[in-house]
Nucleic acid binder design. Sequence first.
DNA 1: GCCCAGAATTGACCCAGATCAAGGCGGCTG
DNA 2: CAGCCGCCTTGATCTGGGTCAATTCTGGGC
Lengths: 263, 263
Amino acid sequence: MTGLALIQIKSEGGRHVLHQKLSSHISCGDCAIRHRAVCARCDTGELAELEAVKFYRSYPAGAPVVWSGEQMDFVASVVSGIAALTQTLEDGRRQMVGLLLPSDFVGRPGRSHAAYDVTATTDLVMCCFRKKPFEALIEKTPHLAHRLLEMTLDELDAAREWMLLLGRKTAREKIASFLCILARREAALQMKSVGHAMTIELPLTREELADYLGLTLETVSRQISALRREGVLDLVGKRGVLVPDFDALQDIAGDDGDGAMLS
Amino acid sequence: MTGLALIQIKSEGGRHVLHQKLSSHISCGDCAIRHRAVCARCDTGELAELEAVKFYRSYPAGAPVVWSGEQMDFVASVVSGIAALTQTLEDGRRQMVGLLLPSDFVGRPGRSHAAYDVTATTDLVMCCFRKKPFEALIEKTPHLAHRLLEMTLDELDAAREWMLLLGRKTAREKIASFLCILARREAALQMKSVGHAMTIELPLTREELADYLGLTLETVSRQISALRREGVLDLVGKRGVLVPDFDALQDIAGDDGDGAMLS
DNA sequence: GCCCAGAATTGACCCAGATCAAGGCGGCTG
DNA sequence: CAGCCGCCTTGATCTGGGTCAATTCTGGGC
């Protein structure tokens, strides 16, 4: 795995990223996810305590972070990039059960082993906290515990939204729903309103998308092609999707619009 | 379990059960779910504060508790009976996104409107807390907040387990998985080990089961019939299921066995 | 005991999406 | 520049589960 990391990682620009464990130590005050992550509501003192037990790790696209069942002695926030949580049946059928975007939290306080496979689907940087001290901090820092509860409740809502998609939506609706969520998030980050033409960067391969949506990669590909033929979207390279009319896409997605934001 | 609920309600006086709000006020100390619910870790003082803002409601089987989008000025624990959380698409397709068993928690602190339809699938008694004071208690009672976090994390795990089922399992596996979960829970409550022949009481109609499993009621019925023909299970009335060999059922369910407990 | 409504079963048929099987298209590597 | 490897697309065919439509149970009320 380390070998893989060394090879692929240069896609990120090449200079320093070669080690899995980064020596650089960003100050929490300067952190891009400072106000959205689990630490969002911590005051300066609490932040200092977190700072003392944190370290960064980075993973190249495609690298595993942990395997289900493995010992996991840290919890973490995604700083940049995207990670996927997946579950697998013995015969190899896979279902992605969560997509972790910047500021999302990985790991469960009070559990020593990973419950899911965690994989970097793009180059990924995580801010990790040693589990023991983090658990101690939760006990004595209401700000931290409260924010974690809030984030977990959001995740639960998102998971349930996804259950509706997996259980009841058609392949076409699944694709449209996923693109809607990405588009909404993109718009929110750029402070633009949805509705205008916009380009989305897919963070997943067709196969990963299939695992997320409960489909096969062929069906994903066919449905995307169909939507393109109908003018609902246009492809820009393999990963870029241009959506000329967001409302049209949302119509196809089939839900009432204000669906759960991804993260 | 359904029977249990019925008995408990009747024993409560028989006459007034038709009213939604019960006048009786059980002391928290005597409560059946005292050590499993959100209050599990509260000390006597904290319990007293909860007691001051709680009230009971009961609902007959089939009754709605709240509709999605409706104002909801309380949060609650299920005391006895079973409730279902469902989401619905405009065209009527329904997906159950959670099954609430005794001790499970309903409602989200910090949110004023229900996110899902909540329905009693059996006669149901809930211990409700007025939302405002409950939220205040969470802020100042780490025991309460911590337990709620733990329960929410459990729910999240269960939801993700269910995503695997919805996205990747066959109808047959879905039915078997559901029965396995019920059986394991039944065994746990009765302190018996699984493996022996055991009878399970289905808390849901075929249609509700279909909504839970992402199937149609016809498919549910056919798969149950098929399993019966094969001798994997036997029906006792409409709702009773006799499982002669738990391991055989678990084999069919397709997952590694130690799946998430329901609640 | 009889009736009836709601729940469940069963059958016939169909279709969305899976499966199997070829290619195509970049982008790296040698 | 050739060749290769990872993706992605597209086609042909198959099938699990959905849809539509009768019956058949079953248990509760009178």
